[in-house]
Design a protein around this nucleic acid. Structure first.
Lengths: 112, 112
DNA sequence: AATATATGCATAAAATTCTTATGCATAAGA
DNA sequence: TCTTATGCATAAGAATTTTATGCATATATT
């Protein structure tokens, strides 16, 4: 995740959440989606993304489906059932993290 | 940071912000303060905290002052001028991170 | 009196996650 | 033709954290 004020550990949650929303996505598509949604603020590097996808797959949270489009390879990932459950947990953790950080660094903020 | 849904990179920001608020604190005090503020959600481990304090000091962001209380050692840390400026930057980065994450994982949230 | 818990700092090994730097390949645009 | 975009992949190194220790004093418990 380059030039981007990111915190380690959040990449997996981003991947899971996007897949939950989009159904299925391939790696390159994820990098572009994140760039779009954050107006360039977050740039996921391939060196971080692909190993992360492989690991989530190895953990049984993602399934892969290979496709060939315009003579180029795409690996579509989607959540398994276990992945769907884990996504709920990760999002809850992220929200809890954000709330905790707000308690620490800025009690004036609140999520509504 | 044990058993705690934390994201790597946030510890420094937590330290800086607490020192900004409290003026000066010693290591053990920081661990307890974080535990209190987050109702036990976040537990800073000593193995993470002390090296982080030493590094922030080496970077010129913190000053140390040793004290002896009840025959026990305490090392009080406080922000240097450079530390105060950096704290502003780190907090801005954290806020930006939170906003970006919200764009990604939950557009329904908003900071107010 | 003995033992456990709390207070207080510290470091080292290992794990995790990320950046940076590559490599390969096809398609489209300048 | 050369650059940019698309698409996946891995390896070396950096950064940050967890886990496991070590040492020492004070207080609470049995």
């Amino acid at each position: 995740m380059a030039n981007s004020k990111l915190y380690k550990g959040s990449l997996n949650t981003i991947i899971l959440k996007l897949l939950e929303e989009q159904g299925k996505m391939y790696g390159y598509e994820i990098t572009q989606k994140v760039k779009d949604l954050t107006k360039g603020e977050l740039n996921i590097t391939e060196g971080a993304l692909y190993p992360a996808l492989h690991k989530l797959e190895a953990e049984g949270l993602l399934d892969v489906e290979v496709a060939k489009v315009d003579n180029r390879l795409r690996k579509y990932y989607k959540l398994t059932e276990a992945g769907e459950k884990e996504t709920v947990n990760r999002l809850a953790e992220l929200e809890e993290f954000i709330r905790s950080m707000q308690q620490l660094v800025n009690p004036n903020w609140s999520i509504k």
